[in-house]
């Protein structure tokens, strides 16, 4: 197949995205998602009440970044993201460098699965997930994506 690395043991890691979120970016994401949890934008509360060392990067923000990695890989295949499961495994703090990475864990030409994670500089993973992709063909598999003018999800 083309566009995705082979699902072999030594498949290359997909390094598609890096971010070092600052307080402004955390505030913007919290505001647009209406995530009002203070630990993402109120340092006084976060340190004084929650006893956390710094502002916390929202879990859905890390999930959204991993989805961008999956969408980019899917578009290059070409295919689309059918599903994505993830969970946050450790806390990521503001100003930390986050690397969104992944590798192919299976593929059969029609479907592929990517293992994705967010990694800190010390190697700690703060978010892990699996994205399942479906290869795009001439005839879209789902009626709703076959409608004129509506392209498949994951085609970014």
């Amino acid at each position: 197949m083309t566009g995705l690395p082979d699902a072999s043991a030594d498949a290359p890691v997909i390094t598609a995205l890096q971010a070092r979120p600052d307080p402004l970016q955390l505030f913007c994401f919290s505001a647009v998602t209406w995530n009002l949890h203070r630990i993402h934008y109120d340092l006084t509360y976060t340190q004084g009440t929650e006893n956390l060392p710094d502002l916390v990067v929202p879990g859905p923000m890390q999930g959204a970044w991993l989805l961008q990695v999956a969408a980019t890989a899917a578009a290059a295949w070409p295919g689309r993201v059918e599903s994505f499961s993830y969970r946050n495994t450790r806390v990521a703090y503001v100003h930390q460098l986050l690397a969104m990475e992944g590798t192919v864990i299976s593929s059969d030409g029609t479907h592929a699965a990517l293992s994705l994670w967010v990694r800190l500089e010390d190697g700690t993973r703060t978010c892990e997930g699996v994205a399942r992709l479906r290869r795009r063909t001439g005839a879209p598999a789902q009626p709703d994506v076959a409608s004129p003018g509506v392209a498949p999800a994951g085609g970014t």
């Binding site: 994505f84 499961s85 993830y86 969970r87 709703d144 509506v150 999800a153």
Partner: peptide, 16 residues
Amino acid sequence: TRMAGETLVEFRRSIT
């Protein structure tokens, strides 16, 4: 204390 657990999302079509 509230935390997010596991999330599974299935995409049928894009949001525009």
